[in-house]
Computed example of a mutant assay.
Amino acid sequence: MQTLRIKTPSTDGAERPRARPERDLLPLLAGAATAIGGVGAVLALADVDSPLRGPFTLFFLFAAPSVAIAAALRGLAPFGRVLVSVAGAITVNMLVAQGMLAVHHWSMHGGVAAVTALSALVLLLVAVRRLRRRTARERTS
């Protein structure tokens, strides 16, 4: 029996292995989604009369809580993480709308601001939790 070996490219600087295209595309898509969401929030809060205000604001209202919830669920499998984060985003939006309607203070600006605040709070809590874990690891090592 003969063993076949696959040569790996040398790392002497002359020739570098090429990155996979999907790895290069993910940061670009994340940046575009952030820009679209940010523009949607600004258009909604500034009350700009634009045909892009509706779709971009709707994208922001689903993307902001989804990203925050997905960041909190790093241990889940990718498909489960996406499913739970989208369901959580829908739930956050519905609870914000229901709460604002219940207290008779419904407004588009208030809804966007409330969803933004809740999403930012979840992201802040995730960042604090990661920072605590990192400092605990550094103390034990």
Rank of each mutant, 00 (worst) to 15 (best):
T57W: 08
L58G: 15
A114K: 08
L121G: 14
D49V: 11
S119F: 01
L83N: 08
F56T: 09
F56L: 11
W106N: 06
V103T: 08
R16W: 10
T116M: 10
G80L: 08
P78I: 08
R16N: 12
H104G: 09
G110I: 05
A44N: 03
A30Y: 09
P55E: 03
L29Y: 08
P21M: 00
V86Y: 09
V86K: 03
A102V: 03
R16C: 09
F79N: 11
E138C: 05
V92C: 08
L101G: 11
Q2C: 13
G110E: 00
G40T: 01
T11I: 12
V82N: 12
R74E: 12
A32S: 08
V67H: 09
A87P: 04
G110K: 00
A117Y: 02
G13W: 02
M94D: 14
L118C: 10
A102T: 14
R23Y: 13
I69N: 01
P51K: 02
L45D: 01
V42F: 11
S85Q: 04
T140H: 09
L61P: 05
L4M: 10
R74S: 13
S50L: 08
T140P: 00
T57L: 06
R132K: 12
L123I: 04
V128E: 08
R133Q: 13
A70Y: 00
R16P: 12
F60T: 02
D49S: 12
N93M: 07
L131V: 11
A64M: 09
T57A: 13
S141Q: 14
R81S: 04
V103Q: 07
G75P: 00
T140F: 10
A70N: 05
P17D: 06
S85F: 01
G38W: 03
G31A: 07
P17N: 07
L58A: 15
S119R: 07
G88K: 06
T91H: 07
L131Y: 11
T3F: 10
L95K: 07
E22C: 08
A64F: 05
A89L: 03
G88C: 03
L83H: 02
T34Y: 05
S141Y: 15
P21T: 04
R16F: 15
A113V: 10
I36P: 00
Q2G: 14
A117S: 06
P55S: 03
P21A: 06
L121D: 05
T8G: 05
M108L: 15
A14P: 05
